[in-house]
Simulated assay, not measured.
Amino acid sequence: MQFSPPLQSATLIKRYKRFLADVVTSDGQQLTLHCANTGAMTGCATPGDTVWYSTSANVKRKYAHSWELSETQTGDWICVNTLRANQLVREAIEQQAIAELSGYSKLSGEVRYGSENSRIDLLLQADNRPDCYIEVKSVTLLQQGRGYFPDAVTLRGQKHLRELQAMAAQGQRTVLFFAVLHSGIETVTSAHHIDPRYAELLTQVQQQGVEVICYGARLSAEGIWLTKSLPLLPR
């Protein structure tokens, strides 16, 4: 995924009301950015960090600028725009960059499925093989040198695991895809200390056939690209 034009930088003053952040540019201009992230953003929104933002050409938008990346004061790059995860995984599949998900002829997004009124992020289909249901999650929480998901209790995430488990029981291929969008994360595990029910469900659904794929990314003001498979560690 290439940013065109490249992102612009500013210094974070504060994030507030979940969807807003105040920043100051190098020339002293203060801006309010839209933040497309409803999570806790632990470690991703420290005042003084460098914020990288895009600007929309849509004149009807109340906030023209969107917070895309954080560059921490320790040098890590983090994608805080959670909308990017699905886009990145879709792009990588289309470019045959994820070996585990190659060989399908059709790719669809936001398809309704399951008994709990869900939409699957990505659906892969091909003749003579089961459909592949892919739920994408963005991993940005780094603690004690390890990446964790989720960063807050997620009832929605628990529902997604149940839906994947049900589809696996029907003989379909199901995948939980962790897009690791933090340059400092090299391994991933479930955040049992944050959402123990999610961690328990993750172990359960893996035992019943749900695959977990983790990929790290290269992040910069020019773009984001999924680059390599990362290990999922037991909790």
Results as ranks from 00 to 15, higher is better:
Glu163Ala: 15
His65Pro: 00
Thr46Ile: 13
Ser66Tyr: 07
Glu110Ala: 11
Arg218Ile: 00
Pro231Met: 03
Leu232Cys: 05
Thr82Gln: 13
Trp67Gly: 03
Ser108Gly: 02
Pro47Ile: 00
Gln165Val: 01
Gly223Gln: 06
Phe3Gly: 01
Gln8Met: 08
Asp22Tyr: 03
Glu200Leu: 03
Glu100Thr: 00
Thr46Gln: 13
Ala99Asp: 15
Leu164Pro: 01
Val24Cys: 09
Glu100Cys: 02
His34Lys: 12
Gln204Lys: 14
Asn58Thr: 08
Thr82Glu: 07
Asn58Leu: 11
Arg173Leu: 10
Ser54Met: 03
Pro234His: 04
Arg173Met: 10
Val111Arg: 14
Ser54Cys: 01
Val139Pro: 02
Cys44Leu: 05
Ala168Asn: 06
Lys60Asn: 08
Ala199Arg: 09
Ala217Gly: 02
Gln2Ser: 07
Ala169Asn: 09
Phe149Trp: 13
Pro47Ser: 06
Ala36Asn: 12
Asp121Cys: 10
Tyr53Arg: 13
Ser70Thr: 15
Pro231Gln: 02
Val212Arg: 06
Ala99Gly: 04
Glu135Asn: 06
Ser66Thr: 10
Thr50Gly: 07
Phe149Val: 01
Ser115Asp: 13
Gln172Trp: 09
Leu12Thr: 01
Leu161Gln: 11
Leu12Ile: 03
Arg61Thr: 01
Leu202Val: 00
Ser108Arg: 15
Ser220Phe: 14
Ala57Glu: 07
Phe3Lys: 05
Gly75Trp: 14
Gly209Val: 05
Val111His: 05
Met41Leu: 08
Phe177Gln: 07
Thr187His: 08
Trp67Leu: 05
Glu91Asp: 15
Thr32Gln: 06
Val59Glu: 15
Ala10Thr: 09
Thr50Asn: 11
Val23His: 09
Ser26Pro: 15
Trp225Met: 13
Leu83Gly: 06
Val24Gly: 08
Trp77Gly: 00
Gln125Met: 08
Pro130Gly: 08
Ala169Ile: 10
Leu20Asn: 07
Met1Thr: 10
Lys228Cys: 15
Ala36Lys: 15
Ser183Gly: 11
Ala191His: 06
Phe178Met: 15
Arg197Asp: 10
Gln29Arg: 12
Thr203Pro: 03
Val80Cys: 02
Gly145Met: 05
Ile93Val: 06
Lys17Glu: 14
Gly43His: 07
Gln172Asp: 07
Val59Gly: 05
Tyr63Asp: 04
Arg235Ile: 09
Asp127Ser: 15
Asn37Ala: 11
Asn58Gln: 09
Ala221Ser: 13
Glu71Ser: 07
Ala179Met: 07
Ser229Gln: 14
Gln172Met: 14
Asn37Lys: 12
Trp77Gln: 03
